[in-house]
Design a protein around this nucleic acid. Structure first.
Lengths: 132, 132
DNA sequence: CTACTACCTGTAGCCACTACAGGAGCAAGC
DNA sequence: GCTTGCTCCTGTAGTGGCTACAGGTAGTAG
């Protein structure tokens, strides 16, 4: 049985964030001491760590909640989990593509920039009207 | 002289966003008609488009504001612009690296997932305690 | 007994919008 | 001239996922 501070330390989730997760119903409410302090079991700390790992992998909170829901031994856990993970993987891949496009455009601008104040490509290209 | 609707259409910035930019001082306040409606010049629409392009390239609003400030022919525009762009380029590259790391981890999980409910790697790896 | 923590609740702030609610003005058709 | 419907106005609240207070209580160490 652990205090929220210990739970934070062991799960890697900040205290304020733990309370936020509880408020939002992402993790179940833990027990309380007589004086009203939260008391966490190992199991509850594992749940917090689970959510942290999901978040580190970029899953949105609702996805993390769904994945956490699968840990209690429901049917078709694996295919459900894979569906969520594949969907997320695709969105990560799209983000990477978008960012690489951005990177290309930015690198172009920076490369072509040659301290010529009269024709700075960064300024002038951003200013130029699009063909629309 | 154009209404906010036309300005939105020509700049690609949504009406609500234009008002937001004005409120936040990112673009200067346009003139008003006698009945209080905003009136935009070509120049002001070009500024909106400039901010849009900056945002599309992922620049933060303060950066977009700085870059927009350079369009009025200040000294060292080009090197100032390049400094901002290089810094942003680096942060984009870092984001790409982080996302590719995520992608790798996710792809691993999905690949190793084989509909085995007893040992779904997505669930079990997320649940397993880290060595810490 | 005092000082210092760790904890509590509730609320506001972050970013960059987005989406209302509730009202006013304006142009076109009847 | 009157209605209809469109665009515009202001002001405020919501989004996601936290993070950071303010102001208070409880427990512990010296």
């Amino acid at each position: 049985m652990f205090s929220i501070g210990i739970a934070a330390e062991r799960s890697g989730v900040m205290i304020e964030t733990i309370r936020y997760y509880e408020r939002e119903g992402i993790v179940p409410k833990p027990g309380r001491s007589t004086s009203g302090r939260r008391i966490y079991t190992d199991d509850e700390i594992a749940r917090l760590r689970f959510v942290k790992r999901c978040r580190d992998l970029g899953f949105a909170i609702p996805d993390a909640k769904s994945l956490l829901g699968l840990t209690d031994g429901s049917q078709d856990r694996c295919s459900s989990a894979r569906t969520i993970a594949e969907k997320h993987l695709q969105s990560v891949q799209k983000k990477i593509r978008d960012l690489m496009q951005m990177e290309q455009s930015l690198a172009d601008l920076v490369t072509r920039c040659s301290d010529d104040d009269e024709d700075c490509p960064i300024i002038s290209e951003l200013l130029s009207a699009p063909e629309q």
